[in-house]
């Protein structure tokens, strides 16, 4: 299956949940927030939500700004 993560195409052999995606991308869970198809996925649901084909995933973090 194919998903888009911050506009980068990612091919998955099988569906994985949000926690597994975060682990694969080597990100720190407490420093990011995740939106899939414009719906925010609360941290409490990272184990529950499983990727579907063509999901559009946005992962954001805080950066310097005024």
């Amino acid at each position: 299956m194919k998903i888009l993560v911050n506009d980068n195409e990612m091919i998955l052999k099988e569906s994985i949940n949000v926690n597994e995606l975060i682990k694969t991308l080597e990100l720190k869970v407490e420093k990011i927030a995740v939106e899939i198809n414009k719906m925010i996925i609360p941290r409490s649901e990272y184990d529950i939500y499983c990727m579907k084909d063509n999901d559009k995933v946005e992962i954001i973090n805080a950066v310097g700004g005024g």
Partner: peptide, 21 residues
């Protein structure tokens, strides 16, 4: 203190410090 919200850089060094550190 203000911060901006931006896409995480996918493929970044996992040990790279984050602003919130």
């Amino acid at each position: 203190v203000t911060v901006a919200i931006r896409r995480t850089n996918i493929g970044q060094n996992p040990d790279e410090p984050n602003l919130l550190d």
